[in-house]
Design a protein around this nucleic acid. Sequence first.
RNA 1: AGGCACGUACGUCAAUGGUAGACGGCUUCCCUUACAAGGAAGAGGUUGGGGGUUCGAGUCCCUCCGUGCCUACCA
Length: 890
Amino acid sequence: MDIPKQYDPKEAEQHHYERWERSGFFAPEINKDPAAEVFSIVIPPPNVTGSLHMGHALQHTLMDVMTRHKRMCGYRTLWLPGMDHAGISTQLMVSRALKEEGKSRHDLGREKFVERVWQWKAESGGQITVQMRREGASVDWSREKFTMDEDLSRAVYEVFVRLYEEGMIYRGNRIVNWCPHDQTVLSDLEVEKLPQSGKLYYLQYPIKNSERHVTVATTRPETMLGDTAVAVSPTDDRYRDLVGETVLLPLTNREIPIIADEYVDPEFGTGAVKVTPAHDPNDYEMGLRHSLPEVVVIDLYAKMTADAGADFAGLDRYKAREKVVADFESLGLLEKVVDYEFSISKCERCKTVIEPLISLQWFMKMDQVRDLALDLLAREHKPRFVPETYEKIYTNWLENLRDWTISRQLWWGHQIPAWYTPDGQVVVARSEEEAREKAGTSELTRDPDVLDTWFSSALWPFSTLGWPNETDDLKTFYPTSVLVTARDIIFLWVSRMVMSGMKFMGKEPFADVYVTGTVLDSQGQRMSKTKRNGIDPLEVFDKYGVDATRLTLAQIGSTDTRWNEKQVESYRNFANKIWNAARFCLLNSDGAEVKPETLDNASALQDRWIVSRLNKTARDLNAAINAYEFHQAVQLLYHFFWDDFCDWYIELSKSDVTAEQESAARTEARTRLLTVLEQALRLLHPFMPYITEELWQRLPGEKHLHSAYAGAEPTVMLTAFPAGNANLIDEAAESEMQAIIELISRVRNIRSEMNIKPSERIPVIVAASDENLRRVFSSAREQISRLVRASEISVNGQVEAPRASARAVLTGGAEVAIPLEGLIDFEQERRRLQREQEKLQAEAKKLEAQLENPNFVSRAPAERVNEVRARIAEIAQQSAQLQQTVENLQ
RNA sequence: AGGCACGUACGUCAAUGGUAGACGGCUUCCCUUACAAGGAAGAGGUUGGGGGUUCGAGUCCCUCCGUGCCUACCA
């Protein structure tokens, strides 16, 4: 058999995925057990324009670990993939391409443009689905969905119509966030606030029939052209007499009132605020309270309107600002200008400064669905957030929820199913046909707007399963088991899925929400396209392999972590270790094959021990994965495989396994080794799908699949995940092995400290007063001898060693001595033993102090107190032995 | 401005209130026939500072310092 010394991940990553997918292993139908429990996850649909980044890789790894684990446990599993049409980004991307041809979307017209977007999607959309295959994601591609698919669109319209009929969706004029670049309205969540250093301008407004003036402060002087009032605090004595007076608004011929409103903070600025209802959300609210007129002075393109006055009409908002300031200065009404830090709202996508504008839009009332979500949490504590701290954030946001602006002035997306009759009547329907019927006329104009992308994603957990039809999938897989996502879309997406799930399914969309951490760059900065500090997962895959990258990501779990390539490298080394361990097993496998039953009746200590370790690891691993403790899971696997299996089990079995002479004992040892390896590969599989499949395929023997997958093609991904059989956990074997490991370690320690060359063989004298311990050491004599490179080993009741020996005291009253005639430096040996003595005494001192505290003895659990007592006794005994040893040196 | 996290070895991170660990790095030795991407043995910590609760605190409470993130209408 020809197996290279180094593991080549690319080789293994090449063929397995294609076979897994082709053989239908990812689809729930592979499970033939009608009574199987169900496990389902819907993927957070990546943007159709997107490509894989570290955040995806992290989420996908965790989802895949859970899915593969549950599948191997016999669950009917579905991990449903899909993509989001991503309204604005996609439209922008295609518009940009058009621009290169010298065209705009308006040149094409709506219909042609949308066709063009579909064409783009067919040709170059969905890069990420190719990249997900590379990750090894075991999603069911046969159920892949896209938010603009016909069936998902049907769900969108159904929801819209139902909500409209219930009065939860309405159309109205309200102040909204407008992006002058993208020419669309944005929800509050699509706006980002950035700190900005700017200026605060103090403008003087003359008061009618008076010599006085009132000074207002503003960061946006150009909006003064649209002022319709000046507001002061009702509690502000400075302005009390001015309330009700009239201001002569400079640069315009308008007169506006001075009003009193609670909103005004007398402490800030001058205590007087200019009110521009058409261009500021707070002023808008104030305007409503005081029935102020709304004077629109800025248009959709952020240029001044005719109402701004002839001098300003057509000017860009920033030019207008300069001119207003200059005009005030020449009128002597500019009191002062000071530097000022404030935050500015920008479009999340194009970074253009948002213009708050009054505009006719569609909105969704959130009160009712918000209460459904809050009730679900209060009554059933669902969804359960992991880590649970996110529950507070989620609740807090829900409690402060406002109406959702759902219309967007785009062409790419679900066009709002509302039609207008010639006389301005609104008809909302599932289709144009239904609209005609309702309206009683065919002269209808459809609303040109589309819905916010998140409107369709909010339905994802049930729209993807066939809703509004009552499909089998919907019945089987809803509610889903867990949602895995990054924290930045808890509001945008998670909460909205809960609300719509409760509203339309009457059940929560998922039981748990697992919020992943953020992968930061080495400086602790968030990775972002604009900063260009992102690490491309595909490059990491190429360099270290997918499996090593997955282990790194899995252990990150929900912690924010700085990206550390060294960690990946160490897991690459781990993969290589697995490879070479398997290589050893296979190179010594003649005449043997995997036989699971050989693990149930092991008799030799090392066999009982590894079986015990295997089952304990499996037990703990299952618990860790089920509790979303991925870091713990990775640690368990790493140490079981490397420490227990490679460092000890292989080494202890080596002489049996590599015996030149064929024998029943050799075959048996080889069989056990292969069988333990096969079990270990199963444990590793959810985390490292490629290397485990590659090696598993090479193992000889008839390897059984989980009974739910009987008849399927052989693959490690459909074997039974080891459950961790309590009957095979053997504490006696573990503690006996521990004694052997301790003995070997102490001898090696002596060798190292005494600078004994590795090639030099030394006699080893072991003594134990305990008969069982003597038996344990004796029967492992050959293995111990090999691992410490001993020339001879004796095991007795008492130490009978020459004075010139290095010694160590072991647990359980055992001792080891190494005669070192001529090699030993007595002074050095005494110091070495003295150091050990000091360590023991320090520990004993601490423990004794505890016992001397009467409160500890009376209040701490008895079990704990006994542990301390036992440990003190153990130390006392070892210490006495050490003392004796030191004295013998004199 | 409020809210929420976080601060542990040189680095990245673990640790149901019960003797502070892992991996990498570092030091010494070894190409011992699975693996030098390896083996063996080590060094390295007043858990950001201070106070409190407790028999016992990295963990719970208060406070200060530092760092992130989220939310917010301060013109």
